[in-house]
């Protein structure tokens, strides 16, 4: 464990806590894409299949449980909670899951470290995580405005990915034969997807104006 990875995990944890708090306290999910949240729940479900078979560390297991619980409870809130679900903008959040799930599944069948169910599911979850934010970014473009909690949520998610890249660089130089191209490339793609959002977020923060994404 290095400082970059710990900071990355904590930032990731913060992003889901910010989101849960937003939904729980103001009983609203306006501006949040349910599609993205469902994809994240699928990412964690397919990545943490080994939660009960391969024990790595108490930290690892606890964090996996937190991510699974938070992602599924966010989906539950947005789908089932009688007040929250009313603020869900299903007419704007129309990104089709399958356009992301199928290509990631096919890619994982061809590009993986070992052709076993767990390994293919793990690789699928990596590719899916890289693109899971797309429905959220599309929704933000459509609604044109972004309330600061949603902005913080996407910002924290991007920061977690950037910290993970620093973690991989650190591990590459400090651990012999620590090489994971699949992880690195999908992680890089994911971080680049945030880059444009960061650009607008930083500019709005610098000019102290409300964050507006271009059409």
């Amino acid at each position: 464990m290095n400082i970059f990875r710990l900071a990355g995990d904590m930032t990731h944890l913060m992003s889901v806590i910010v989101l849960l708090l937003k939904i729980h306290t103001i009983k609203s999910c306006a501006g949040i894409s349910l599609k993205t949240q469902e994809l994240y729940a699928l990412v964690f479900a397919t990545r943490y299949l080994d939660i009960f078979t391969d024990f790595i560390s108490l930290y690892n297991t606890i964090m996996k449980l937190i991510f699974l619980a938070s992602s599924f409870s966010i989906v539950w809130y947005m789908r089932q909670h009688k007040i929250v679900r009313r603020s869900y903008d299903k007419d704007q959040d129309t990104f089709r899951h399958l356009f992301l799930i199928l290509p990631c599944l096919l890619l994982a069948l061809f590009i993986n470290e070992k052709f076993t169910f767990k390994e293919v599911m793990w690789t699928f979850s990596l590719f899916l995580e890289a693109v899971a934010i797309l429905p959220q970014l599309v929704l933000l473009q459509r609604t044109r405005n972004i309330d600061n909690l949603t902005g913080q949520y996407v910002f924290l998610l991007g920061a977690y990915r950037a910290l993970y890249i620093l973690n991989w660089i650190y591990r590459y130089f400090t651990e012999p034969h620590y090489v994971h191209w699949i992880t690195w490339i999908s992680g890089l793609v994911q971080t680049l997807l945030y880059a444009d959002f960061f650009y607008y977020y930083f500019n709005s923060w610098k000019n102290n104006v409300k964050l507006q994404l271009p059409a």
């Binding site: 990875r5 690892n60 994971h180």
Partner: peptide, 10 residues
């Protein structure tokens, strides 16, 4: 196992 080492990240 090999899996544990390479899959220690969240």
């Amino acid at each position: 196992s090999r899996r544990e080492i390479s899959k220690d990240e969240l």
